[in-house]
């Protein structure tokens, strides 16, 4: 359940942004979470509500944008979707693949007041 720590990180970063960007309330937080990032979206929602209490993101809506896993195959040069780190190339069976998307854990945008 490291989602609680991740949410603490999110709130900390947003509170710093609140100081530098001059906002006092956040109504929506958009996060990008990759399919290979090892993060449970449900747990993020649960933790976020708990961690946000009493901060600038109190009662803000959390929107999680899922980023699909993608990889390049070094053998056949195809770009293919992957659901796990150890997936083999769906075209030629080669592994390991070079992951190019799906590891994201990022605060993308905020709607602020």
């Amino acid at each position: 359940m490291h989602e609680m720590s991740l949410c603490e990180g999110v709130v900390q970063l947003i509170e710093e942004q609140a100081k530098t960007q001059g906002f006092t309330k956040v109504s929506t937080v958009w996060l990008e979470i990759g399919a290979l990032a090892g993060v449970e979206t449900e747990a993020m929602h649960f933790s976020f509500t708990a961690v946000a209490r009493g901060t600038v993101v109190d009662s803000a809506k959390l929107e999680v944008i899922d980023v699909a896993g993608m990889a390049n195959c070094p053998a056949c040069s195809q770009c293919i979707p992957v659901s796990a780190r150890f997936d083999v190339c769906s075209e030629c069976g080669h592994y390991p693949l070079d992951i190019i998307a799906g590891e994201e854990m990022r605060i993308k945008e905020l709607e602020v007041q």
């Binding site: 991740l6 990180g9 970063l13 530098t20 854990m105 993308k108 945008e109 007041q113």
Partner: peptide
């Protein structure tokens, strides 16, 4: 820390809310 730039602002008078593009890694701290 990175600094988010204002990506879009709602029409004046319609709402005081604005969208900030942050693009910060959650683990950056």
């Amino acid at each position: 820390h990175g600094h988010g730039a204002i990506a879009a602002t709602h029409a004046p008078g319609m709402s005081k809310s604005r969208i900030l593009r942050i693009e910060q890694d959650i683990l950056s701290k």
